[in-house]
Amino acid sequence: MSHYWDNLSARTNGQHTSEEFESAAYRLVVEQVIYYADRHSRATYWLIEGFERDFREALAPLGITLDVNRQLRYVYAKPQYAKAGTASVAQTLLALVLRALYDEGARLGQFTDDGEVVCDLVELEEKYRLMTGRELPGKGEFSELMRTMKRWGIAKKSDESLVQRGDSDQTLPYAVIIRPAIADILGEMALLRLAQWKELDHMPRIEDTESEDDHEVTE
């Protein structure tokens, strides 16, 4: 594969090195989603966007397809023969709720310039309770869950504090930013699963059973 990147680099007349191409491909496989909106990812995004066909050819033998969303400026790698992954109940529930909130924001046209939907913690807590019949996990567990959502490329914490307007102004530490690739990673079938959780909530909980194995997550 190194010869492939060497040849591709030669076509650029030294503008890009083989190491740059190889690093970009590695990041795409590992991170799955590369957003131009992320400052440290802009050069990588432009490299993949500009040499889309070459990256497609390189990833094809690995069974990975490549999609480029030029409108919202992100690239997304998708395994063609991916097996069902495993995720905890908490991870699955939060991901499904975030997908539902993203679609709700889309219907209302509440997008940022980067195609993201911003949700403050008060709204998220309320919608999570309504959609799942459960309480949003506590601060420590929620922070860990958000690290997972960021690693999956579907959501992240905002960098700035927000002011929640009401009877009295309340400063919130951050909001949750739901990222556009969530619609690619969690397909339409994922939304149908969300309605099942309230029914499952009346059944014995996973922590109350003898087995605490993770659940498989599929679309």
Rank of each mutant, 00 (worst) to 15 (best):
W197Q: 05
R56Y: 02
S143H: 14
Y102R: 06
G115I: 06
A90D: 14
P79Y: 03
A43K: 09
G133L: 10
L194H: 05
A100S: 12
L66A: 11
A106T: 08
E49P: 00
R73E: 15
E135T: 14
P204I: 05
K198N: 08
I206Y: 05
R147Y: 05
H202K: 10
E104R: 13
L8Y: 06
L98T: 05
L194C: 06
Y4T: 07
V89K: 07
L47H: 05
Y36W: 13
S18K: 09
V97P: 08
G109I: 04
Q71C: 03
A84R: 10
R205Q: 14
E57K: 11
A90V: 06
L59W: 04
E207H: 07
F55Q: 06
P180S: 06
Y35A: 02
M1D: 07
E160G: 01
L172P: 01
S88I: 00
L93M: 13
K83L: 11
E20Y: 03
E31S: 14
Q164Y: 14
E144D: 15
E19G: 03
E212I: 02
I182D: 03
K156S: 15
R53K: 12
E20D: 08
R53F: 03
R73P: 05
I182R: 01
V117Q: 06
E207V: 09
V29K: 11
L47D: 04
E135C: 04
W197V: 14
D167A: 13
A60T: 10
K83G: 04
S211W: 01
I177S: 07
K150S: 15
E20L: 04
V117G: 06
R129M: 11
R70T: 15
G140R: 15
A183R: 12
D67E: 14
A90R: 09
C119F: 02
H202M: 02
L194I: 04
L124G: 10
V176S: 06
D120F: 10
F111V: 01
E116S: 05
L96E: 02
V29G: 00
V163F: 09
E104Q: 14
L93K: 15
